[in-house]
């Protein structure tokens, strides 16, 4: 009996273990090894930290790295600011069918691929696009306006792409907040902002943190949106990785970049968890 249940457990775990080892652990170990070798001649390699040194000494790489991190933090913050009222409305104010309809509306854009969604934004924002045409028609501008290929367009795209991943955990945690707790706040003399600060936000903290982690990671690792909506100046770190692997064929440097990105996201997630006093179990459970 015990042997049987062991076997059952093992069989159930097998797909997960295969997934973890084949797709995550082995490639990463290999990547780490690749990032730690230096090409000294044709087909000749030696182990060194040269790739990481290159990363640290080249200002463009470092600057892009920091910019990507800061922009991702900004995108996360903006997503939170927009998603919180939306989630609050869905979870606490809307009732019954309206509630499910609104939730579905948040989901609808995700039925098409990210590529198509991004093209949608391009249709709206480009020089010959809808907004530009609308402004000209209204007589607010004289000529066509280019709204694509800048940081704002890229930020819009990033926030739009991540919205759902913030709304879902927020709605879930806010729904678990008993209405009578909010009413008790009012009853005891609390005002709207003080209830938000002292009751709603502390309660929603696990949802806020888990939403932020997901959105931050998605933004940091996004390739499509910065490439398509961002301009020449808006270089994203994933684009650097791509160009090292695909354009330059410099897998060693690309792997080192990849590890720097992994390190960066880990450090920032850890810092956010420490700052908010949350644990990974609490936010992801």
């Amino acid at each position: 009996m015990r042997a049987q249940s062991r076997l059952g457990l093992f069989l159930l775990l097998t797909p997960l273990l295969l997934w973890l080892t084949l797709l995550i652990v082995i490639p990463h170990i290999d990547m780490l090894l690749v990032s730690l070798r230096e090409r000294v001649g044709v087909g000749e390699y030696r182990t060194s930290l040269a790739n990481y040194l290159t990363f640290l000494t080249e200002p463009l790489y470092l600057w892009t790295f920091l910019r990507t991190a800061l922009m991702s933090v900004l995108a996360t913050a903006l997503t939170l600011l927009i998603a919180f009222p939306v989630s609050y409305y869905i979870a606490k104010i809307a009732k019954g069918r309206v509630q499910s309809a609104l939730f579905l509306l948040c989901l609808v854009p995700f039925w098409v691929s990210e590529l198509v969604r991004t093209f949608g934004w391009m249709i709206l924002l480009r020089e010959t696009g809808v907004f530009s045409g609308l402004l000209q028609w209204a007589g607010l501008v004289d000529g066509p306006v280019e709204m694509l290929y800048n940081d704002v367009a890229m930020m819009v795209g990033l926030v739009y792409t991540s919205m759902l991943f913030m709304v879902v955990p927020l709605v879930t945690t806010l729904e678990s907040l008993d209405d009578s707790v909010i009413e008790a706040g009012y009853d005891l003399g609390g005002s709207g902002p003080s209830i938000l600060r002292e009751i709603v936000i502390p309660h929603a903290m696990p949802g806020i943190v888990s939403g932020c982690i997901v959105v931050f990671m998605l933004s940091l690792g996004n390739y499509l949106t910065p490439t398509m909506l961002g301009g020449k100046e808006s270089l994203w770190f994933t684009e650097l990785i791509y160009s090292q692997f695909i354009v330059r064929f410099n897998w060693e440097l690309g792997a080192a970049f990849g590890f720097m990105l992994l390190l960066l996201s880990s450090v920032i997630v850890w810092a956010v968890l420490r700052l908010t006093g949350q644990t990974l179990e609490k936010t992801m459970g």
């Binding site: 009578s180 707790v181 008790a184 706040g185 005891l188 003399g189 609390g190 002292e198």
Partner: peptide
């Protein structure tokens, strides 16, 4: 003031903070 059916104590606060909430707000 009202004592709610399921009490509606603030789970994110300690007992002292719960009792002091109204006074803080005042």
């Amino acid at each position: 003031n009202m004592v709610f059916q399921h009490l509606a104590l603030f789970p994110m606060m300690t007992i002292a903070e719960n009792i002091g909430y109204g006074l803080r707000r005042a």
